[in-house]
C-alpha cells in the first residue's frame, strides 16, 4: 500500500538546472514569484511561459511531469476561472441570461487569474522537480543561517527536516507491517463507512506512535554518541559554492523581470 510513495516530486537527473546551487534555486523561485505577480498584461504571460518551457527543456524533465504537478490544482483553477467569469463587473456584455452575465472584462480577468496560477505552480514545481529534498533542506539552512543571530533556529529546523525525511520510509514500512499484523488478527480496514474506517485506523496508529517514540529515544542516544551537540561548531562535508552558472541563472530571471517591467511601462 505504501510501497511506491515518492517523497516530494524530485525527478532524478543531472542537467544544468539540477546542478544549480539549491540556494540559487530557492532565491530565484522567490524572485520568479514576484515577477509573475508584477505581470499586469495578459499577453506578457507569454514571456513567463517561454521562460518556464525553456527551463523545462534545459532540465530534461518531460513536459508531462510538469503538467502532472498542475493536476492537484485543476479544480482550484477551474473554480477560480468561473468565479471570475461570473462575478467580475463589466460593461461589454457578451452573453446574458436571467441573472447570469458574461462580460469581456470578466473573461479577461478569469483568464488572467488562471494563467497566473498556472505560471506560479509550474514555475515553482520546476524547483522541487530538480532539487532533492535533502539539497533543499541544506539550501534553506544556509539561507536562514544569518537569522541565527536573532535566535532563529535554522540548524534545528533543517535537522528536523532531515530526520523526518530519513524516517518517513521507515515508518511507512512499519505502518505496512502493523497493518498486515492487524489484518492477520481479523481487523477490517476495507468495509464500512468513513467513521468506521477511521476507527479502524486506531489499532495501526497506536503501535506506530509508540514505536516512533521509541525510535526517537534511540536515535537521540545514537546522535549523542556521535558527538551531536547542536549546530554550534559544526562543519559540513558538502560545501555549497556559487558557480558562474548560478550567476547566469540569476541574470536570466532578472532579465525576465526587467523585460516585463519595461514592456509594461512603454509598450502597453
Amino acid at each position: 500500500m505504501f510501497k511506491n510513495i515518492t517523497l516530494g516530486q524530485y525527478f532524478p537527473g543531472n542537467s544544468a538546472i539540477h546542478r544549480l546551487d539549491p540556494r540559487t534555486k530557492i532565491l530565484l523561485m522567490i524572485l520568479y514569484i514576484v515577477v509573475v505577480f508584477m505581470v499586469k498584461q495578459l499577453s506578457l504571460f507569454l514571456l513567463c511561459a517561454v521562460f518556464v518551457l525553456g527551463v523545462t527543456l534545459l532540465s530534461e524533465i518531460p513536459l508531462s511531469y510538469l503538467l502532472k504537478s498542475l493536476r492537484p490544482l485543476k479544480w482550484l483553477i477551474v473554480f477560480m476561472f468561473f468565479l471570475n467569469v461570473f462575478l467580475t463587473p463589466g460593461e461589454r456584455v457578451l452573453f446574458e441570461y436571467w441573472k447570469v452575465k458574461i462580460t469581456l472584462e470578466g473573461l479577461r480577468q478569469a483568464a488572467f487569474i488562471s494563467l497566473r496560477l498556472i505560471m506560479l505552480v509550474s514555475g515553482t514545481s520546476l524547483m522541487t522537480l530538480t532539487t532533492t529534498p535533502i539539497a533543499l533542506t541544506d539550501g534553506l539552512e544556509r539561507l536562514l543561517s544569518p537569522f541565527k543571530r536573532v535566535n532563529f533556529p535554522a540548524h534545528e529546523l533543517a535537522m528536523m527536516m532531515t530526520i523526518a525525511l530519513r524516517f518517513i520510509p521507515t515508518l511507512m514500512e512499519e505502518a505496512d507491517k502493523i497493518m498486515k499484523a492487524q489484518l492477520a488478527r481479523g481487523a477490517d480496514f476495507e468495509t464500512g463507512g468513513i467513521i468506521k474506517r477511521a476507527k479502524g485506523m486506531i489499532p495501526i496508529l497506536v503501535p506506530l506512535f509508540i514505536s516512533a517514540f521509541r525510535r526517537a529515544d534511540e536515535l537521540a542516544m545514537a546522535m549523542e554518541s556521535r558527538c551531536y551537540h547542536g549546530g554550534e561548531g559544526r562543519t559540513r562535508m558538502r560545501v555549497l559554492k556559487f558557480m558562474p552558472q548560478d550567476a547566469l541563472a540569476a541574470l536570466t530571471v532578472a532579465f525576465l523581470g526587467i523585460l516585463i517591467v519595461i514592456m509594461q511601462a512603454f509598450v502597453f
Partner: peptide, 23 residues
C-alpha cells in the same frame, strides 16, 4: 534507529561534522 540522514555517505560524515572537522 542510528542512521540520521537520507544518504549513506552523509550519514557517515555526521560524526566528523559534529566534531567540526574541515570538509
Amino acid at each position: 534507529n542510528q542512521l540520521v540522514t537520507t544518504i549513506v555517505e552523509e550519514d557517515v560524515g555526521f560524526g566528523p561534522e559534529n566534531l567540526g572537522i574541515p570538509p
